[in-house]
Design a protein around this nucleic acid. Sequence first.
DNA 1: CTGTTAGCGCGTTCAG
DNA 2: CTGAACGCGCTAACAG
Lengths: 349, 349
Amino acid sequence: MTEGATQPMVRATLEDVARAAGVSLATVDRVVNRREGVRAKTVARVEAAVAKLGYRADVAAARLARGQSFRFAFVLPTGSNSFMTNLSEQVQRAADWLAGQRGFIDILHVDVFDPDVLAGALDDLSPVYQGVAVVALDHPKVRDAIDELTARGVAVVTLVSDAPSSRRLHYVGIDNPAAGRTAATLMGRFLAAREGKVAVIAGSLSLRDHTERQFGFHQILTSEYPNLATLPVIEGRDDSARTRELTAALLKRHTDLRGIYCCGAGNRGIAEALEASGRARDVVWITHELTQHTRRFLVRGTLDAIINQDPGHEARSAARVLLAHCMEEPISPDQERIRIDIFLRDNLP
Amino acid sequence: MTEGATQPMVRATLEDVARAAGVSLATVDRVVNRREGVRAKTVARVEAAVAKLGYRADVAAARLARGQSFRFAFVLPTGSNSFMTNLSEQVQRAADWLAGQRGFIDILHVDVFDPDVLAGALDDLSPVYQGVAVVALDHPKVRDAIDELTARGVAVVTLVSDAPSSRRLHYVGIDNPAAGRTAATLMGRFLAAREGKVAVIAGSLSLRDHTERQFGFHQILTSEYPNLATLPVIEGRDDSARTRELTAALLKRHTDLRGIYCCGAGNRGIAEALEASGRARDVVWITHELTQHTRRFLVRGTLDAIINQDPGHEARSAARVLLAHCMEEPISPDQERIRIDIFLRDNLP
DNA sequence: CTGTTAGCGCGTTCAG
DNA sequence: CTGAACGCGCTAACAG
């Protein structure tokens, strides 16, 4: 048995360090927190003591003494598709957690799909907020509103949907082109060498994430799977009824339709059309986001794979990033990276 | 714009509650922490005040006042395969994080594949530890050692490899039969309707996780993909050289070998044999764990998919579960559930 | 440049 | 059954 280095039995306190270095508490505090006004020689002495005793600041005590608290606004879509409902719930849970850490989250619901409304909501945001997480839109007005907040010293993170041209601090969400490529690889491989057509259904091509997914999907499908022809993108406006009609028309018109990639919402409509057509097991259907509905379609075999982003992880990550920024603490990039999950029937959580 | 309920501007303290309820600090504390010795009437009055003010205990202050600290042992394998090395690093990072929360982690490396050695290490563990995380082995001696620790009041979580018959508090790891089923579905679908043989390479069939994966794999492949015949399982002992020989022999002997599922380690050997044979692009190869090696094989196209468990998540989860148990706090199951990740070339993190 | 001191919000004695 | 008072480890304001 090989022992690793064991930690000291009880942690050293600032006072222990002060005694060891022969200085006062305040001086040690200055050195540890890298504040000005200490002679280089003294700094060295203190740092030696810190190293010798293995001193680590007690975050609980520091937070208590600092007594600062934080207030963040989470700007989420009104609307009620399953994914966004789920995201709201997860933000609420992250808020409960943060409340124990002297952090408060207010959730604001706005129509994030209207650039004017969204920009207006950001402009009107109360100045009490030190941080904002927003499901953004890549539009000049929104970008300006974000930049204005940033200029006022407010930390802004974009959530799920990015505004890359803005000065937001951080984007919490998946790499959408990569998600589209992932869907394409699954589609191409599931269809093996079969020939035929593949349809792409987006919510709206004016949504950057849908466009990016579609872009990644096309990129791989056309370059690596020449046996499959992609049909022009269809916009279902994330609406089930409309998407059902469009899908039904698609199935009727193209008897050689082999696959459907849905890079937005409206999945219930697709499922209905597919099942009504009797070709559900024959057509490979890949979509985004694990919800109660898509889970059912996957288990039933109508849906073949789900590309997912974990809303719980996203909500917690946004909260952590904002908190870390306010406390001037570093974040650990690979804990904050949102992964592109692939779910098949067999690895559903 | 719809506003969510906004939180109070400053959090209520115990003292605020005491004043509102017309009692003292100590009484509120007793009620809040569900201690004995308070009249029912007083309890009710305090609880009303708590509800009215939306009081939430400040965890930082509570931790500071309690001043308790925790010490955990993480028992990890000696040996040096990439996954375990990675796990060690992640445990070290979790330890750095915990150190700020008054928690200390000592890392012990033992030969976890030898039941006697592992059980001995657990038996000999210093009594200073309130919690132990162990990469376990499903063996009576190990089970007894875990149960003995549990009986002594030590919280035990199994990590990556479980001992389900023991009285461990919690298992931090993936559902291995489900992981095997996931691999089988990918294999079956990637091979579409092609006919031929599929080989399964395990490290050792006396390792429960390898057996479970292999079981799940067979289950799906035989029931859903009758076009594919599975060859008898081969044991590569997680050794690259040996696995290379075995794979080469396999490729030579079965000209209709269509797929290889590796449910253990030794991936470098498989890659070498596949690439040497010139059939790397033809044979579908699926394996476990994202490492620097498997990443390369996947990007290069020799490997088709990786089934992964995130060691960073596992290390943090084990630490959180132990900490929560010691502080008698609840855990949130879906944050602690370890997912079965699927990585293709396109969604690598 | 450095030291002293008064809390931060809560848990835990110990008296009443 | 209830209350007063001290201290956890650290920060910040002030004094020297």
